[in-house]
């Protein structure tokens, strides 16, 4: 449903993304993981049209929406929850009455419809952002570190919500993240990026448990987990 082929992006001569290709099946869920400077966010922005690629092709069947990392700045501070959703629904020629359904879908109390962003917690704001993105009934949702800024207990709520929303709407996810445990939980396939290039790609199960590439191995090894001993030798290089 989304096919990205040989994407390349230069910023003033610096190559941010270099020969990146991946695809997302309808209703599928692909993670793009990498550390800062890996080019993963640039890929997301190219897919959503926020940034123009220097070369390469993006073929997309259907519409795309995006959820951003910072829940505090991804809503217009002057707009109530209802106002925000109504604006988007009107734009996509959808019925206003769907506001209630959308709030239910993302697990927000309907009474919060009149609330302004500053009255909402980070997790609630992120729910509004997801509702806004789903209002247009997109085929693909790009989530750019959408749970990274949230507290652990809230993160779990939002991850459950994302799993439920995909089951309910059939929307596909392109999940941009640095958090491998999130990848394991919500994605089927993963693309590992480093310095603008794809170093490894495949099913999550295979890539994260039997990584082929040295960098993937390092990435997997550096995630704190029970019994983990941090080592400075492993990550050298």
């Amino acid at each position: 449903m989304l096919e990205v082929r040989d994407l390349r992006k230069e910023f003033k001569g610096v190559v941010a993304v270099d020969g990146v290709s991946f695809r997302v099946a309808a209703g599928g869920s692909l993670a793009v993981v990498g550390e800062s400077g890996s080019g993963k966010t640039t890929c997301a922005r190219i897919v959503t049209g926020l940034t123009k690629a220097t070369s390469g092709t993006v073929v997309l069947n259907g519409s795309v929406q995006m959820v951003f990392q910072d829940p505090y700045q991804s809503l217009d501070r002057r707009q109530t929850v209802r106002g925000c959703l109504a604006e988007v629904l009107a734009h996509h020629r959808k019925d206003r009455s769907r506001i209630g359904e959308l709030l239910d879908l993302v697990g927000l109390d309907r009474a919060l419809g009149e609330a302004l962003p500053r009255h909402l917690s980070g997790g609630q704001r992120q729910r509004v952002a997801i509702a806004r993105a789903l209002a247009a009934e997109p085929r693909l949702l790009v989530l750019d570190e959408a749970v990274a800024a949230l507290d652990v207990s809230i993160q779990a709520q939002i991850l459950n919500l994302l799993v439920d929303a995909r089951a309910a709407t059939g929307v596909a996810y392109l999940f941009i993240t640095h958090d491998l445990s999130v990848v394991r939980h919500v994605c089927e396939d993963v693309v590992v990026m480093s310095r603008g290039r794809v170093v490894e790609a495949g099913p999550v199960e295979r890539v994260l448990h039997r990584p082929d590439h040295e960098y993937t191995r390092r990435l997997v090894a550096s995630v704190p987990r029970p019994g983990w001993v941090p080592s400075r030798a492993v990550s050298r290089g």
């Binding site: 049209g49 926020l50 995006m66 991804s74 604006e87 996509h92 993105a133 247009a136």
Partner: peptide, 22 residues
């Protein structure tokens, strides 16, 4: 450059609408 403006752009609102309304 705030994400909410970018979200509106991804939604497909016109520059005119985003500038005047937001």
């Amino acid at each position: 450059n705030l994400p909410y403006i970018e979200a509106l752009r991804v939604q497909g609102f016109s520059a005119w609408h985003i500038c005047l309304r937001h």
